[in-house]
């Protein structure tokens, strides 16, 4: 009993020391480094003005009422605009879009300073997204699964 306890104390300390000597760090040095998100990542949404047929399905299926059809006075066609104050990135709008006018970008690391910056009416909705970290010149890292270390982050070629 007593010896078992001592052995377990020693084992616990030895395990700690093992990791102290040979650490298994998986930290990504964000914002110096940024992970390249997986192919199908559901990030900020991009809107293709020309493909849109104004069917309104995206606004109808949006669970958070973030997507709205903006109807301009005098214009017949309403176009979708998104409100990132509410968007929950479920991707239903993209999956239901019958013309693939909506698509995911692989950018999700954004923060805003003002509330109205987060409103994206149709015109602004078409703008391209770039990751702020990459704009600052972050190294892009690919995630690799590894038996020894769990996750490894290797620079993208």
């Amino acid at each position: 009993m007593f010896r078992g306890k001592v052995r377990r104390h020693v084992e616990a300390i030895a395990t700690g020391l093992k990791y102290l000597v040979k650490p298994n760090r998986i930290t990504v040095y964000y914002p110096e480094e940024a992970i390249v998100l997986s192919e199908r990542y559901r990030g900020m949404i991009h809107y293709d003005w020309d493909k849109c047929i104004s069917c309104g399905l995206c606004a109808m299926i949006c669970p958070a009422d973030a997507m709205k059809m903006y109807r301009k006075k005098g214009e017949k066609k309403a176009r979708p605009g998104i409100n990132y104050q509410r968007c929950i990135f479920c991707g239903y709008c993209v999956d239901i879009c019958p013309t693939n006018a909506l698509s995911f970008t692989r950018v999700h690391d954004v923060a805003f300073e003002k509330l109205d910056e987060m409103l994206y009416p149709p015109e602004k909705f078409t703008s391209e997204w770039r990751s702020p970290a990459e704009e600052r010149g972050a190294r892009r890292l690919r995630v690799v699964f590894d038996e020894e270390r769990g996750l490894k982050h290797v620079p993208e070629q």
């Binding site: 964000y30 992970i35 923060a111 987060m118």
Partner: peptide, 26 residues
Amino acid sequence: HELFPIEYFIPGCPPRPEAVAQAIVR
């Protein structure tokens, strides 16, 4: 935002940890 002066808003549900990190860095 009706209660506190908020410095940064992080969109997402939930936001990626990178987004939180972005706000903290900023």
